[in-house]
Structures are given as structure tokens and as C-alpha cells.
């Protein structure tokens, strides 16, 4: 009976495995895109991919752990500035820059997370916001080091292993680097959320008190989730900085954190595809919309409020509802 039942619980997994190959289709399309798309669209796609990493990482907190951080831009900016400092002072070798960036973000996230997770709910939201503002203020005021509101330039790195060196020169190489980072992040994060650890996070989101009564030291898991999310956000920040060849304090602005939240909520919290769609939508609105209309922020605000009011589960939620209503008459 045991095995029979286990298999009845597994069809979703089996289906996912069978369907797995066609999840790769979008990636193949993205890999072919630079061959046909003009540079503007290639650059736009690159930005969407990096922002999608950022949004997915934020969703690990919001959608999976139930921790609403309003200061996730801190880690995006931290990664970006870390890239600027490292390429300037240490090395332009990506194999050196990448670990330094990610490790420093992780370290900073441990400190912030330790402090912010002493609280929960609204206080947590406000604390994360305050900590990101602290970096924002520091980036502007401590101009000797951070370049102030002018920001810092970031060198394009190369990949070097001993004598073997590959420059990441024109945009095309960087595009594939970002695409690879996106694919890796997506894969790693989907493994993570499906793992026991991911299920633990969902349990904490559902009912942290009960988790404690079952023997979970919930704050450790929350801190771990916080650091993981920060590292992926830092990766996105590093990539964006390399793409723009420039970082500015605006990366830390609370509106950047807010945009991340909009991506997650509008796309659909608690899924990984949702934030990707959200990043696409928000960034299209920002970059294409801003050239078409002055008031793209207004549109974004209105769209966001409408989603909060009428579709709190985002685009994914709407799609699921549509699919269910299509299926139910047949059933």
C-alpha cells in the first residue's frame, strides 16, 4: 500500500519531468535572440534577465518564506559596488570578481539579516528598508570612496585561467554571460524551492509558530533564506553594473526595492516564473514606456494597485484561474 500511495502522490512530479525538455525552449530562444534582434532589444533582454534574477531572489523571501523585504535593492547595489571596487582595485578577472562580490554580499546579508530578523512582519519590512537607505545615504555622502552621486565606473571583466584568457568585450559576450547566470539561477532556485529546505521555508510562511513547536529553529532558516536571496540579488547587481559599465547610488534607492516588489506581486509571488514575467513587464514599461509617455510611473503605480486590489496572486494567478475555469466544465 505504501508504494502504491507514494506513486499516487507523485504524478505532478512525473509530469514535470516529462515536460522538462520544453522548459528549455525559452532558453534556446533567448540564446538565438542576439542573432536576429537589433542591439537595443538585445540590451533590453539582458537587463530583463538580470532583473529577473533579482526578482526571483526577492520572491524566495516574499513568496516562499513570507518575509516581505522592502530593502532588497541593498544587495543589488552592494553587488554592483562590489563589482566596481573589485575590478578597480583587485582584478578584472571574472573568476576573481565573482566570488569576491558574492562572498561580500553574503557577509553583509548575514549582518543585516541577523538584525532585521529579530523582528517580523511590518517591522521587518521597515528595517530592511532602513538598512538599504543607510547604504543609499552612504553611497551619496561618502564620495571619496563611492564617487558620491556621480557613482563609479565598472570595467568589463575578462575570464582568465592562468595563460588562458577570454575577454568579455562587446555586448554579445556579456549577453551570454548574463543568460548563463540567469539559467543557472533559475535552475538552482527551482531546485532549492523544491528541496526539503524550500518546503521548510513554505512551512515557515504558513505558520512559523507551529514550525517551532515541531522543532524548527525558524530564525536560522529565515536567515539562510535571507542570505541566499541576497547573494542572487548581488549577482544580478554585479551583472547589471558590468553591463552599464557604471554604478550609481540610485541602485540602492527604495524605489528599486519597490520595483522588485512590483515585479514579484504583479508576476505572481510564490512561483519562479511569476517574477520573471514581472521583471519583463516592469522593465518593458520602464524602458519602452518611458520613451512613449512621461507618466509611465503613474501607469506602473496604477497597474500595481489594481493587481493588489483585484489579482493579488499576479499574472500567474490569473493564468491558473483561467486554466481551471477552462478545465472545470469538462470535468
Amino acid at each position: 500500500m505504501t508504494t502504491e500511495h507514494a506513486s499516487s502522490l507523485r504524478p505532478a512530479a512525473v509530469l514535470a519531468a516529462q515536460r522538462g525538455w520544453w522548459r528549455l525552449l525559452p532558453l534556446v530562444a533567448l540564446a538565438l535572440l542576439p542573432l536576429v534582434a537589433p542591439p537595443f532589444w538585445r540590451s533590453l533582454t539582458l537587463e530583463v534577465l538580470a532583473l529577473a534574477i533579482f526578482a526571483m531572489s526577492l520572491d524566495v523571501l516574499i513568496g516562499y518564506t513570507g518575509l516581505v523585504s522592502f530593502g532588497h535593492a541593498a544587495f543589488l547595489g552592494f553587488g554592483a559596488y562590489a563589482a566596481a571596487f573589485t575590478t578597480e582595485r583587485v582584478s578584472e578577472n571574472l573568476l576573481v570578481v565573482l566570488p569576491i562580490c558574492l562572498a561580500s554580499v553574503a557577509l553583509y546579508a548575514v549582518v543585516v539579516g541577523f538584525l532585521a530578523l529579530r523582528t517580523s512582519g511590518i517591522s521587518f519590512l521597515m528595517l530592511t528598508l532602513a538598512f538599504s537607505q543607510m547604504l543609499f545615504g552612504l553611497a551619496i555622502r561618502w564620495s571619496r570612496v563611492t564617487g558620491g552621486s556621480d557613482g563609479l565606473s565598472v570595467a568589463r571583466p575578462h575570464i582568465g585561467l592562468g595563460a588562458w584568457q577570454v575577454p568579455l568585450g562587446p555586448d554579445l559576450d556579456l549577453y551570454y554571460l548574463v543568460l548563463a547566470a540567469f539559467a543557472a539561477s533559475w535552475w538552482l532556485l527551482s531546485r532549492l524551492v523544491a528541496s526539503p529546505f524550500g518546503h521548510t521555508l513554505r512551512g515557515i510562511k504558513e505558520n512559523a509558530q507551529r514550525m517551532q513547536a515541531l522543532g524548527y529553529r525558524t530564525r536560522r532558516f529565515e536567515l539562510a533564506a535571507f542570505v541566499v536571496a541576497a547573494v542572487f540579488a548581488g549577482l544580478a547587481g554585479m551583472l547589471l553594473a558590468m553591463h552599464n559599465r557604471y554604478v550609481s547610488p540610485d541602485t540602492f534607492a527604495w524605489t528599486t526595492s519597490g520595483q522588485g516588489i512590483i515585479m514579484v506581486i504583479v508576476g505572481g509571488a510564490g512561483t519562479l516564473v511569476g517574477p520573471i514575467l514581472g521583471a519583463l513587464l516592469v522593465h518593458l514599461l520602464e524602458s519602452v514606456g518611458s520613451s512613449a509617455t512621461e507618466s509611465w510611473r503613474l501607469i506602473m503605480g496604477v497597474v500595481f494597485v489594481l493587481f493588489v486590489l483585484f489579482a493579488p496572486k499576479g499574472i500567474i494567478g490569473i493564468l491558473r484561474r483561467l486554466r481551471r475555469s477552462k478545465e472545470s466544465p469538462r470535468a
Binding site: 516588489i261 507618466s295 510611473r297 503605480g301 496604477v302 500595481f304 494597485v305 493588489v308 486590489l309
Partner: peptide
């Protein structure tokens, strides 16, 4: 979240 959206709208 709704007040955040309202803030965005008012700012614009």
C-alpha cells in the same frame, strides 16, 4: 503594498 502604489501614483 497598496499604500506603496498610492505613493508612486502621487509622486508622478
Amino acid at each position: 503594498l497598496c499604500t506603496f502604489g498610492v505613493g508612486l501614483i502621487l509622486a508622478d
